[in-house]
């Protein structure tokens, strides 16, 4: 089995601030982290690898600093890391990103399973995984929360609106993972972090891929961001404190005042 897991470095913040003049996200001083969906994808991928044997390759596209999410993935258990980093990859929208990653996966070769996070928490598009599957002509299973490989078949439990469904797909296939609420991410201890340093790690540039330069980075991205703005701040709600009986009484009064009741 050869598994590729795609991971992205994202800003570690729930309080995203926008530069009011440029309309872009303020990234300075914001620490970065592995996209949480991707960490779950990685750990599911590792579970599969541990059962089937074989190797798990972690793949990311990003600036040179994105090496740290690869190192984290290697510390958690991935066997090999590849970072696509080149100015020519920069500014990619989901179309160009999916194209670039699919070209890298082609270059890795003989990949049986691709696992992605459902979406990146900075863009929330959920388009890249399906985009890769389309370009690699692989069947895809989205919104999976558990995957297994049995006899050359991917079996995935998907989260659907009113429950779960289990579907199967012939390998090679791609799955995108959504994080179950009870997932506790692995925190690697020191020796595993040090061992990660000794694992194979490569950085690939445009020249390393058999790709059409016009479909990469900004040139390959038809998406236009017209404007980015933070949603208007909501007024802080009124907090009622005191004994339950008292609060209920006050609440009813307020609701009457507001003509809700």
């Amino acid at each position: 089995m050869r598994i590729v897991v795609c991971v992205k470095q994202v800003p570690d913040t729930t309080d995203v601030r926008v530069d009011p003049e440029k309309g872009t996200l303020i990234r300075e001083g914001v620490p970065s982290m592995i996209n949480p969906f991707d960490q779950f994808a990685l750990e599911e991928g590792l579970r599969v690898r541990d059962r089937t044997g074989g190797e798990l390759i972690v793949l990311s596209m990003g600036p040179p600093q994105a090496k740290s999410v690869i190192m984290l993935s290697l510390a958690i258990g991935a066997d090999r890391g590849i970072l696509l980093t080149d100015r020519a990859f920069a500014g990619a929208d989901t179309l160009a990103t999916a194209y670039t990653l699919s070209k890298a996966i082609e270059k890795v070769g003989d990949v049986d399973l691709v696992v992605c996070g459902l979406q990146a928490i900075d863009g929330d598009t959920a388009q890249v995984g399906p985009g890769i599957a389309t370009r690699l002509r692989m069947p895809q299973v989205t919104y999976a929360e558990r995957i297994e490989v049995v006899d050359g078949t991917l079996r995935a439990r998907r989260v659907v609106e009113d429950g779960n469904e289990t579907v199967e797909a012939r390998l090679p296939a791609l799955a995108t993972m959504t994080t179950p609420s009870d997932f506790v991410p692995t925190n690697p201890p020191f020796t595993r972090i040090m061992k990660a340093k000794g694992k194979p790690y490569e950085e690939w540039k445009v020249a390393d891929l058999d790709a059409d330069p016009g479909r990469l980075g900004l040139d390959g991205s038809p998406t236009w961001v017209e404007k980015v703005y933070p949603p208007p701040k909501r007024e802080k709600g009124e907090m009622l404190e005191g004994a339950p009986d008292e609060i209920v009484g006050r609440l009813v009064e307020i609701l009457k005042q507001e003509r809700v009741l």
Binding site: G29, S68, M71, L72, A75, V184, P185, N187, P188, P189, F190, I193, M194, K197
Partner: peptide
């Protein structure tokens, strides 16, 4: 700010440790 003292591995270790200890 770029850290000038700790190695990349120490920085990663602290992050991993902090989250781990908060959980345990």
């Amino acid at each position: 700010m770029e850290d000038w003292f700790f190695t990349e591995e120490q920085r990663m270790f602290r992050e991993s440790l902090r989250e781990y200890l908060q959980n345990h």
